[in-house]
Design a protein around this nucleic acid. Structure first.
Lengths: 142, 142
DNA sequence: TATTGTTATACTCTATAACTATA
DNA sequence: TATAGTTATAGAGTATAACAATA
């Protein structure tokens, strides 16, 4: 396959992703989690408590913006803040029981919408997306 | 590969994409095109003039939102509106000479940022992204 | 009655700037 | 002096609602 075609294809990929993200957002009602909120909860569930700065770095956001996200999740009762045992500046963010339950029950409409779409794919297509995810992750981290 | 792992992987993909989009946006200065604007110009360059409604449907947006995008591009001198020859309601959106030139010269910083990132990939990785693009496009169109 | 488009308004997400507190 | 966090403000992008014009 010629290189130029592939370059254009990746631009097309970004455009398709834009459409997909808009659809996913539209599918989630106002009472649901945003993509960033879902990410934060997923990370907390997987790796345990983290600081605002940690989460911001992981998601490529400014700490102030992540602070806003955390505040929204806290107001929903999904996460709680606990002071760091030794460093008085830091605050550990952790999932509440409710947050863990919501995370487990997969009530996130956005994930449900995605899961529904994904369930229609063939195994080989999922694997392609899996590989693409690793590539994009590497790109995003640079 | 187990199915559960792949499902999780696709969620990870979406998260990585979120980070990538934020980086791409941050890389483009305020004088540059947004992703949606770049998409619109790409489509106009490829398929010729289109109506606001056409473009909105293609991008999964509301016509009013696309109207705002078109207005921004028009103010930049990238596109121009021409009345439809027979249907008085419709307005054809087409690239101006300036718009076509900007499109050709690849001065879009976002594309440049992406191109720089993409250029570091191996050929097989580009091909994976190409395939993923087709899969995601299909998902987004459903 | 349905479709195209515009204008006005509001909401979501993230950024920048300025500040406090702790190391 | 550097790091963690908060609060206030602003901007981009898109949505909803209400409207006018045309089919």
């Amino acid at each position: 396959m010629p290189r130029k075609t592939l370059d254009t294809a990746v631009i097309d990929l970004m455009q398709s992703i834009g459409v997909l993200l808009r659809r996913a957002r539209a599918a989630s009602g106002s009472h649901e989690l945003s993509l960033t909120e879902a990410f934060v909860m997923g990370r907390l569930a997987k790796d345990g408590p983290a600081t605002t700065a940690d989460l911001a770095r992981a998601e490529g956001m400014k700490p102030q913006s992540m602070g806003t996200t955390i505040a929204a999740l806290e107001e929903m009762g999904m996460v709680e803040r606990k002071p760091h045992p030794t460093d008085g500046r830091q605050v550990n963010i952790g999932l509440t029981a409710k947050g863990a339950a919501v995370r487990k029950s997969a009530k996130d409409a956005k994930q449900t919408w995605l899961m529904r779409a994904i369930s229609q794919l063939e195994e080989s297509e999922r694997e392609t997306l899996f590989k693409a995810g690793e590539i994009i992750k590497r790109l995003a981290e640079k």
